[in-house]
Design a protein around this nucleic acid. Sequence first.
DNA 1: CCTGCATCCTCTAGTCGCTAGAGGATCAAG
DNA 2: CTTGATCCTCTAGCGACTAGAGGATGCAGG
Lengths: 147, 147
Amino acid sequence: MMSLTIGKLAAAADVKVPTIRFYEQIGLLPEPVRTVSDRRAYDPAAVRRLAFIKHARQLGFPIEAIRTLLDLADHPERSCEDANSLAQEQLTTVETKIAQLEALRSELRRMVAAGCQGIAGDCRVIETLADHGLCGRDHSVPGRLSS
Amino acid sequence: MMSLTIGKLAAAADVKVPTIRFYEQIGLLPEPVRTVSDRRAYDPAAVRRLAFIKHARQLGFPIEAIRTLLDLADHPERSCEDANSLAQEQLTTVETKIAQLEALRSELRRMVAAGCQGIAGDCRVIETLADHGLCGRDHSVPGRLSS
DNA sequence: CCTGCATCCTCTAGTCGCTAGAGGATCAAG
DNA sequence: CTTGATCCTCTAGCGACTAGAGGATGCAGG
């Protein structure tokens, strides 16, 4: 019965302690056994599950998608259709976001390049913000990438 | 005394009505005059101010930065140093984020390309998520772009 | 054995930038 | 005069945590 404290688990998966409690609360991680003094005692498998979650989060998958993905990982006999489509969806999301950010980047570059040293009244940054007509109109902020 | 209702203002700046009330609440927009029946009555200048805010938000500037930027726009005699550095900062943020997303994109592409038709047990998507060692280790999700 | 500090526990509230909805008043067109 | 759109305030919710209060426990050194 080699079990881990929440702190050890956190260190092992490089995740913060409160995050683990949070994942438990929302049902991504199962409730672990408790010691007599009510501390969480994890078995080593928890490290892999948590690492899975962490990796998926790093890739930007939303929690709900991760729930599905974990479920699939827990039931290897099911069809992996969902996993494929979630990955495809996430790829599309990321690609869209990159495109939008590239548009922002180019306008910001123009603003910064035109940067001024004087007073706000003559500032190109302020001016650009004040008049959208001054710039390529095709940017808009990406929706959040689930993070 | 050509004044606008909140709805007209919203339409004019292409922003939602509750968003305007929200901006007022946090002090980005000044409290407008009220009619006898307690409705907000905006003067046309409000459209420009709101458009300024909208544009800055589209570029990903956080509210606090916009506060500074608006302040500068209101006081054209001040130095625009802050505007320049905020823009530079924002550019850096966006560039960092693009780089991170590009790393995500390439891993997601690999996952999707290896996509499987079978059961979850053999699924490369699941497998990749389970074992971070299988992929280039250099991605991590961008912090939010104040979006 | 004792001290002291690290770690653990639960709970609540805060982050960011809105968005949604309840419950009600008012306006404008037909 | 009625109907439906718009307005008002207020509260709560989103996602994915993060921070902090206030207290209990565990562990290592002296």
